[in-house]
């Protein structure tokens, strides 16, 4: 197991915001965490690299390749972040430094962890181009000279993913990484996650509120509600046979509001429409 979380409990003062959550993720596994706002999904993910807000207290265990992370000194956590655990955030605009070139930001984790020497300019340039091509940025050797504002939102998120994967971490954490993007751009980023995980064998932890996105990018899933793990299983399993009422509610609501090419649409009563099977008609 790459990542093993057991009985993770997070409190703000007396208030329990994450309550005895346990799960594990194997190398190469695509693991999703889903929940609505306030379910504790982001805090759970922040706890893994030790990034909880200062006022939070916690108990339980977070083990990465057998090593306990909870309670590690900041100095040791800094050695793990970016090297063993890569993180991709929601908004690539704020996650990147506007004053530094794309290339410099891509290789930063390699310099920080001493994998490439700061003065080894040839190797830095080579690595920058390698990472830019890894995340399928167009014209890698030119784009590394550019600045974030010269890139589109989707390209900036590719840079964010490149930075997270630079030092070949065993775990890749992604918290709503496509929420700020248009759907056509989102589709490309989800495909990139899938390609990278199957090529690199890194364990992916993907946090989302969107069951449709989850279905594209995860095999197994943990459903959180009010800080508790209410259900876990395969994505196909919880979509087709949700066991817990929270999961059933999420799936039913998603079916009522998300696009489904199998049902006809517009006007009428949704109850009538759901019953009818329909042709997919030229969509794929």
């Amino acid at each position: 197991m790459s990542l093993e979380i057991s009985d993770l409990t997070i409190r703000f003062g007396e208030r329990v915001v994450v309550d005895a959550v346990s799960f594990s993720v194997a190398p190469g596994e695509r693991f999703g965490i889903i929940g609505e706002s306030g379910s504790g999904k982001s805090l759970t993910t922040l706890a893994i690299p030790g990034l909880l807000p200062e006022r939070a207290t916690w108990t339980g265990s977070v083990r990465l390749d057998g090593v306990e992370l909870l309670g590690l000194a900041e100095k040791e956590l800094a050695r793990i972040r970016g090297r063993r655990i890569g993180s991709v955030f929601q908004d690539p605009q704020t996650a990147l430094n506007p004053m530094r070139t794309i290339g410099n930001q891509l290789v930063e984790p390699l310099l920080l962890h001493g994998i490439v020497g700061r003065r080894d300019h040839d190797e830095r340039a080579r690595q920058a181009v390698r990472l830019a091509s890894l995340v399928k940025l167009p014209d890698p050797s030119r784009i590394v000279e550019r600045y974030p504002h010269q890139l589109s939102g989707g390209q900036r998120q590719r840079v964010g993913i490149g930075i997270a994967l630079a030092a070949s971490p065993s775990v890749l954490l992604a918290d709503e990484p496509t929420t700020a993007l248009d759907v056509t751009i989102q589709a490309g980023i989800l495909e990139l996650f899938n390609d990278l995980v199957s090529e690199s064998g890194t364990a992916l932890v993907f946090v989302t509120h969107d069951l449709g996105v989850l279905a594209q990018v995860a095999d197994s899933v943990l459903v959180l509600a009010n800080g508790r793990a209410v259900e876990r299983g395969t994505v196909a399993g919880i979509l087709d046979h949700p066991q817990h009422e929270v999961t059933a509610g999420l799936v039913a609501a998603a079916r009522l509001t998300s696009f489904d090419a199998r049902i006809p649409l517009g006007g009428g009563d949704p109850a009538d429409r759901r019953a009818e099977p329909a042709a997919e008609g030229g969509l794929s």
């Binding site: 056509t184 589709a187 069951l211 196909a236 489904d260 090419a261 199998r262 969509l283």
Partner: peptide
């Protein structure tokens, strides 16, 4: 419109790997 529709993540018809 076709590109937009095919990019929407679906609950069903998943696995476009």
């Amino acid at each position: 419109t076709r590109a937009l529709l095919s990019a929407v993540p679906r609950l069903d018809g998943r696995r476009r790997r």
